[in-house]
Structures are given as structure tokens and as C-alpha cells.
Design a protein around this nucleic acid. Sequence first.
DNA 1: TATACGTGGTT
DNA 2: TAACCAAGTAT
Length: 367
Amino acid sequence: MTASLLTDSLRKRAALAGRLLAWYDRNRRDLPWRAGPGESVDPYRVWLSEIMLQQTTVATVTSYFADFTNRWPTVEALASAELDAVLHAWQGLGYYARARNLHACAKRVTTQFGGRFPASEAELATLPGVGPYTAAAIAAIAFGQAATPVDGNIARVMARLCAIEIPLPAARSEAGRLAARLTPKERPGDFAQAMMDLGATVCTPRRPACALCPWIDACNARSLGRAEEFPRRPAKRARPLRHGVIFWTERTDGSVLVQRRPESGLLGGMAEFPSTDWREEPWTDAEARRAAPVAIRWRRLPGTIEHGFTHFRLELTVWSGRIDSHPAAILGNARWCEAGALSGLALPTLMRKVARHAMEHSGETGT
DNA sequence: TATACGTGGTT
DNA sequence: TAACCAAGTAT
């Protein structure tokens, strides 16, 4: 018997929710940000985990979450940190606007709300970096409000349960409307987490384990034999390939030229090595020399750095140059960083690849 | 509504 | 291997 959430009785919907909660109680995963039995929920940890988990896997988040909560056990502690320290701790996690908003949000909660996160979905949604999903998730999980977050898991579970034919991203709001009809007054936070766990472990994007699903008899997509076809997705656009030249500028004392990226946009606020623009047209050697941060003898290192961003792929050529003493004319906002201090910089993964490549090839002859 | 925004793991 | 995918938000 399949579910029809718009016409099913309240009792039938409550039974469906109850079955999922029972499944959750049997299969509950112990995650570091979840309160253990008898522990009270800490809104700070819920919020921090939800921000980290945006578009990021549990496996990746775990070590960052442990590091952040060790260094900054409270929202006030995080608010007191320097932005650069937060960016440094966030390096490698990606989507760096999250780190900037995290810091801004901690300050807002500390100054505007006296260190207590607001409990309502509407107030939560006014905080930097907190959108509709995160506001609902915190309200439900940390404050027991009957809110219905819709993440990718929940959208997929609902799209299958109700065979939503509308393609993403519009399917998301439809999924939210339907999921709200299932959300129980009791344990709304557990219900949301149960939906997400179900999506993450059973109702997976590919090859869902329907035999293990507490909703197998209610699932419309399953009854149609089309579970894997939901949610419908629009065709993806190809990611263009962009090219750039990046300059590894070494002083005779071993220092390297670095600079800070603009506060917003790609890798905003993170450290980088001076580089050309990243464009689709490859750079000629002559163009690269003209774009170099200082007029010295450069050599092009063998090989390239390849890196994938969300909306384009990047191929960087690394050029290496050595310079004596203190050149009068450089820089812009660039500065020298001692070799041993590189690890103290907030370097995104791309720039770590560049540094590793440059150091591996230092001493070789370029082509 | 559409696009910008990282990275690592899986298939 | 290239594509796909992940507990989304800001603009």
C-alpha cells in the first residue's frame, strides 16, 4: 500500500513516522555532534556540525569537528578567535565562505543574543551562513521545534516515497511540503535525523537497499520499480577547463612570496601564490613572463597541477624564480613567508598542491 | 530561477 | 577515467 501524503489520514501519517523513528532507534549512528543518551543537546555543536556538513561528507567533517570543538568549545570562544585562525583551521574543508560566515555568526550570537542561539527557525535563518535547511535543522535537533529541514537526503527519500516527477531543484520544495506532513510533534529532531540517516545508508542515490527500508511497502517509486530514477535531475553542464600560470618566488633565505585573496569570491580570504588569471585560453610563455610578480629569471617547472572546482576545472603551470635580497618593486599585497611558516598559512588544497609541486621540482631544470 | 562556490570519495 | 555525488547558502 503506497503513501499518498496529501490524502492520507493523520493516523496513517503518524504510523509512517513512527515506523521510521523505530528504525532510527535500532540503527542510530553515534556521531560526534549527536548528544549521547542522557546528554543534553548543545546548540553550538549542532550549529557547527550543520555548517560543516553542508555539501560535505560525514567522514570528512569528523576530524574538523573534533579540532574546532577542542580549540573553541563555546560560541563565545569562536567569536573571540581571529578570522585567520578560523580560516586556517578550515583549510581543506572547502567552500570557504562557510568559514567566514561561521565566524561572523559566532560574533552575532555572542553580541546580539548573549551567547545563546535563538530557538526559532525564523530567527536562526537571519544568521550568516544559516539558510532554510540549517535553520530548520537546528530548530528541530537542538530545540525540539516541529521544523522540517530538507537536505539532499530528505529530498531523495521524499521524491521516492511520493514519486515526485518534478525535477530538482524544484522538487526540493515539494519534498519539503510533503515531509512537513510527516513531521511528528514529538521528536521532530530525531525524525529529521532519521530521514537523513535513511537517505545516507539505505535510500542511497544509486542501488538503494530497499529490502532494509522501513517504508518499503509505502514507497511509490519502489512500487513502480523505479526507485533509482528519483529524484529527477536536470542534465548537467560540462565544466570548462581553465588555464593559469602560478609563480613560486623563492628568496635566497628560503622565503616564498604569498598573498591574501580578496575577501569574497573563489577561495575568498585564503592565502595563495601570485598567479595569472584563470582563463580558458592557455597562457603563452611570453604572456606568463609579463604577468610575473617581479622581473627575474623564471623557469617553467615540468608537469601541471590539475584541480577540480564545482563549476570549472583548472590546469596550472608552475613557474619558479629565485631572487636575492629585497627587490624594490614587487608586490601589490604580496609578502614574504618563511618556508617553515607556510604551514601556518590558510592555504586551500589547490595551493598546497602548488607548494608540493614546486618543492618537489626545485633544483630540477625546467623545460 | 540560475549561478558561484571546494574537496574527496565512489562508480 | 570522467562523472557523479555530499547534512546548502548567497546573490
